[in-house]
C-alpha cells in the first residue's frame, strides 16, 4: 500500500485500483473545528482538481478536490454524523471518499510523505 499527498493538502492511500482520500492533519489543523462535511455521491466520475467534497469549520467552507481522475465509489458516512472526527483522525478514520483510479499515471506527479512534509515547511 502506498500513500501520496497533494499540494491541496489531501492524502491518498492506494490499495489495488482503489484510492482512499482524505485531508491531511496539517489541513484539519488550519481549518479548525470541523462542523460539516459534504461528500460526493457514489458513481460520480470526476477529473483531477474537480471540487468533490466540502469541509466547513465554524469560520469558513473549504473545497476538497479530486486528487486524480476516477470514479467515486464511496463517501465516508461517519463524517456526516460526526464531522469533528476530521479533527481527531484526519489521516485515518476520517477519510472523505474512496475512488477508483482512472489514470494511475497521475500518481507519479503527487508527493511522497517526505516531500509533503518538506512542502508544508515552506508554507
Amino acid at each position: 500500500m502506498s500513500t501520496y499527498f497533494t499540494k491541496d493538502h489531501e492524502w491518498l492511500k492506494i490499495e489495488g485500483d482503489i484510492a482512499t482520500v482524505g485531508i491531511t492533519d496539517f489541513a484539519q489543523n488550519q481549518l479548525g473545528d470541523v462542523v460539516y462535511v459534504e461528500l460526493p455521491e457514489s458513481g460520480k466520475t470526476v477529473a483531477q482538481e474537480d471540487e468533490v467534497a466540502v469541509v466547513e469549520s465554524v469560520k469558513a467552507a473549504s473545497e476538497v478536490y479530486a486528487p486524480i481522475d476516477g470514479e467515486i465509489v464511496e463517501g465516508n458516512e461517519l463524517l456526516v454524523d460526526e464531522p469533528a472526527k476530521v479533527n481527531e483522525a484526519a489521516e485515518s478514520d476520517a477519510w472523505f471518499f474512496k475512488m477508483k483510479l482512472g489514470n494511475a499515471a497521475q500518481l507519479e506527479e503527487l508527493m511522497s510523505e517526505a516531500d509533503y512534509k518538506a512542502f508544508v515547511e515552506t508554507l
Binding site: G32, D33, V35, S57, V58, K59
Partner: peptide, 12 residues
Amino acid sequence: PVQYPLGVLKEH
C-alpha cells in the same frame, strides 16, 4: 487574533 490554541468552537 482570530483564534487561540483552544480553537474557535471551544472558545465560543
